[in-house]
Design a protein around this nucleic acid. Structure first.
Lengths: 338, 338
DNA sequence: TCGTGTCTTGAGAGCGCTCTCAGGCCGATT
DNA sequence: AATCGGCCTGAGAGCGCTCTCAAGACACGA
């Protein structure tokens, strides 16, 4: 078995070439200020003459840090692996932030609480990472709490459904949904339905709650169908809603993908948008401005959520206190569908 | 700075508790067969009594392996971070395969040959990973070659545009495109246009080449517009094509997202699909069956590509010889758009 | 001139693990 | 009964790095 790194230069080599001790070479490499300039230069020269790169394993062994953060995502989540690019946007944000801090991103997918669950738990609690970001949890997943209890800095994306102190970053889903529904009501819609997200995820639950509360405020009856954030489920739910209440004149979908599916279903059922039925989505994904008609939707700053959650976990790993809950702002983007 | 793992049990502790030497404990943990069963049991008991998890850093230090593989993706790639879920599907495949081999996935995004490029290179050549998977490269990116030359096992997704021996996994884009165009011609279409992908990526180049070659075979003139794999670019390109040749009766788009954009543009220009214009896409993404009309498209096994590329890099890292080029099959999925 | 304090440098002890090597035990063979 | 061979086990040497601690160098004031 040929190892690529067998002949990689070590700090010892660098020190030798520079004519200093290993300790001094280490100081230079790690940017200590208390090294005489001319010695510093000698070491730096040696470093790039030899193409020296520190061995992370050796470093971790002594520092007890790994400089890497786990990003745990549920593989089954439709938001993660379907035609909803939510996942990519979050990763992007996380990645940007970690890169800036010179940390690595270790991606772990977990199935529905199967063996891969244990694997993640063992890996994370095993000190392989300095912290973990968990997102798109379904149901009352015990993972965040467990990791946290095991001493791993954990920050989640999205409110936890368990009783738990694990900090999280999210938008105010309930409030945002309420705003969307109010917009519909304010523009004269009477029979407003909703296509809710999965009811084992906080985003799904809270947006439905927001819808209900807004409808209650206006003394109107709720008309609900549940999807799973995908286009297909949106189309299906829309058909159901139409069957349930052919008179409905507006629908609030808990994701843009579902809203897009709904648009299709409406079209196929001969309804004009927004003339007959107004549609509001949620996310403001890129494709929302290209649907027919362009989608009025609740923008949430997905990449920012990724960045923020990463920043929080880094702070936590650095021993800082962080806010247990951080809610990022949303904004209703008015286009033509409502 | 409180470290979570400060008091984690070490192999020494396990050995002590089991009343054996550290060497024997190590043997058990690593599944060596030459350990007496009753001793083995004692050690295993100690392991889970203490909740022992091996320290990866220490292990790496001596084995010179890290058990992790880097997945390098170009951040600018529209396929990666737009409404095209290509990225997620590849990751999924890679992840599945690595998980099965108990390897970690380290995700690295690179911008357009900026500082992040060096970072990736340093990191990978620095022995932090056992291998690297590179995908969605733009232009003549020197990264794969450099890493490979530095002794890092590298496998790419997609043909390289540089002269290079770096192995890759892909589909036969040229051939697949040819098949798509032939289908159009065979069904009586005369003026077949194409919306090509970016011409600094092999997938873009090769699919265009396939289109051209099929058109030449049929002695027809090429009608070309170039997009960047996104919906928006597809819509734009379609409008251009329509302006260039109002008589066109078919279009082959190099991605489903662009095909979807094209469908929209066609609709907006009053063309019926497939009656006036037939449309064929490429990818067979999930949404392709829900477009209006459902999209005829070239299916490529994206998740499989991810799996395969992961498998190849693992083999390479294990010192095996691998095929320099591996082409996975495509299939023309006929739906209603053509 | 000598002592004191400050600053830079080097020596060396591990971090937790794997793996080689040698020793010990035991059954088998002559 | 003595010797041989095979199989387990333990001792110990590192892997490459960081960090503590002490020693050396130097400037300064008394």
């Amino acid at each position: 078995m040929v190892m690529s790194g067998r002949d990689r230069p070590t700090l010892e080599n660098v020190a030798q070439r520079a004519g200093v001790s290993r300790a001094t070479a280490s100081r230079v490499v790690n940017g200590s200020t208390s090294v005489a300039p001319h010695i510093r230069d000698k070491v730096l020269n040696a470093v790039d003459a030899l193409g020296y790169v520190p061995n992370q394993a050796a470093r971790s062994l002594v520092t007890q840090r790994t400089d890497s953060i786990a990003l745990v995502a549920s593989e089954t989540t439709s938001r993660v692996f379907s035609d909803d690019p939510f996942f990519a946007a979050v990763i992007r944000g996380v990645s940007l932030e970690l890169e800036a801090a010179d940390k690595q991103l270790v991606l772990m997918m977990v199935g529905p609480s199967g063996p891969s669950h244990d694997r993640v738990e063992r890996y994370a609690t095993g000190g392989h990472v300095d912290g973990a970001i968990i997102f798109s949890m379904h149901g009352a997943d015990p993972l965040p709490e467990r990791l946290s209890r095991a001493g791993v800095p954990v920050v989640c994306n999205g409110r936890l459904l368990t009783q738990s102190q694990v900090p999280y970053v999210d938008v105010d889903n309930e409030d945002a949904a309420r705003a969307a529904v109010h917009h519909l009501l304010d523009t004269g819609r009477r029979r407003v339905a909703t296509i809710a997200g999965p009811q084992d995820m906080s985003a799904g639950i809270d947006r439905l709650k927001g819808y209900r509360s807004a409808m209650q405020d206006a003394s109107r009856r709720s008309i609900v169908a549940v999807g799973d954030f995908t286009r297909q489920s949106g189309a299906l739910a829309m058909s159901q809603l139409l069957a349930d209440d052919p008179q409905l004149d507006a629908v609030f979908a808990a994701s843009d993908a579902m809203a897009d599916g709904a648009l299709r279903a409406l079209r196929q059922n001969g309804r004009r948008v927004p003339d007959d039925v107004a549609v509001v989505g949620f996310d403001d994904m890129e494709f929302a401005r290209d649907t027919e008609p362009p989608l009025t939707t609740v923008r949430q700053p997905i990449t920012d959520i990724g960045r923020t959650v990463a920043r929080q976990v880094l702070r936590l790993a650095a021993g800082e206190q962080i806010e247990p809950v951080l809610l990022l702002p949303t904004e209703l983007i008015k286009r033509e569908s409502a």
